[in-house]
Each structure stands twice: as structure tokens, then as C-alpha cells.
């Protein structure tokens, strides 16, 4: 039985092969995986919000909460476990909009799209190749990352499972 780690909201967890990383019921949040196949190390961050500007010092104790703090912290943490920065690859999923209220002032409901964009931008800036991603839409996702075949399995209710 392979050990599976549940990555809760705003958590960052790093594992070595063959352990798995799982996040249940992603809505607007992002499940971001960085991995190094040669070093057999992978880490997942469960990102809730796009940026930490204006956040309290207390909030910053959880760097996984914001995309702009999660990406550098995740890079640091996988490298501390033996990954080599230049070999890092990324896969991510999530960032959906669960509710749409036509005509209402609801920028806060579109946070998923901003999470996805911010994550993609930050990875680009850090020079990390995004192998694949599955973001947007209006359905929640459950994601499982395997450090055996390095695939991210994405399950959507009523739509089955895809692997990216």
C-alpha cells in the first residue's frame, strides 16, 4: 500500500517516490505540483488566493495560502528534499467558479480564474515548465499525483477521470 498524503487548504507537502499526493474537492483553489523525476521528489501546494498583498502577518504563516508565496516556498521545499531546480516541472488543476450570479457584483466568486492565471504567470517567471494543467469551468475537482508515473489524475463529479 503506497502512502498517500492529503494536502489540506493552504498546506504544502513534499514527498519522495512512491508516495502519493491527494487533494479532495478543489473548487476555486489550485492544486499545484512541482516534481523532479530524476531525484524522485514531488511537492503539492493547495493555493486558495492569488496574492498576499494586504495579508496580515498571521496569514503569511501559511505560505501555501497565496499563489505568490506558495510558488517560491514550494520550490524551496522540493529542492531541500533533493530536487534540482533546473529539472523541476509543473502540473496543476483547479481554479473553477462554482457559482455564477448574473448581474451581481461578484468578483469574489471569480477568484478561481485569478488563482489559475497568477499560478501560471509565477511559474513562467520562475522559468518552470508547465507540462499540463486542467483549470477553469464550474465543477469541483479531486486530484491525485503519482510519483511512480508522474501523472496527475483529475476527477470531476459526473464526468469521470482524466490524467494529465
Amino acid at each position: 500500500m503506497v502512502k498517500a498524503h492529503h494536502v489540506g487548504m493552504a498546506d504544502i507537502i513534499v514527498v519522495t517516490s512512491p508516495e502519493m499526493l491527494i487533494t479532495l474537492g478543489l473548487g476555486s483553489c489550485i492544486g499545484l505540483v512541482l516534481y523532479d523525476q530524476t531525484a524522485k521528489v514531488a511537492g503539492m501546494a493547495h493555493i486558495m488566493l492569488p496574492d498576499s498583498r494586504g495579508a496580515s502577518a498571521k496569514a503569511l504563516e501559511k505560505p501555501g495560502k497565496f499563489a505568490d508565496t506558495a510558488v517560491p516556498t514550494l520550490i524551496e521545499m522540493v529542492c531541500a528534499k533533493g530536487a534540482v531546480r533546473s529539472r523541476l516541472k509543473a502540473k496543476f488543476a483547479g481554479g473553477s467558479q462554482m457559482f455564477a450570479l448574473p448581474g451581481a457584483e461578484t468578483d469574489f466568486l471569480a477568484v478561481g480564474a485569478r488563482n489559475a492565471k497568477e499560478t501560471a504567470d509565477l511559474l513562467k517567471k520562475a522559468g518552470i515548465q508547465v507540462v499540463n494543467s486542467d483549470v477553469g469551468g464550474n465543477k469541483g475537482r479531486t486530484v491525485e499525483f503519482s510519483t511512480v508515473d508522474w501523472m496527475l489524475a483529475v476527477k470531476i463529479l459526473g464526468k469521470g477521470k482524466i490524467e494529465i
Partner: peptide
């Protein structure tokens, strides 16, 4: 009051909406 929005999904995903609303201002 806005028009209503409806979702059929996992409870965790629905409650993330709540977490992100409050997460912007605190813990």
C-alpha cells in the same frame, strides 16, 4: 438580493467558496 446561482458538486468544493471569501480578510 442577487439572482441565485446553483451548483451540484462535492461539498468540499462548495465550501471552498466560503473559505476564499473569508480568506481575503483573515483566518
Amino acid at each position: 438580493i442577487s439572482v441565485p446561482g446553483v451548483a451540484h458538486d462535492m461539498m468540499g468544493s462548495v465550501l471552498q467558496v466560503v473559505a476564499s471569501i473569508f480568506g481575503q480578510s483573515g483566518e
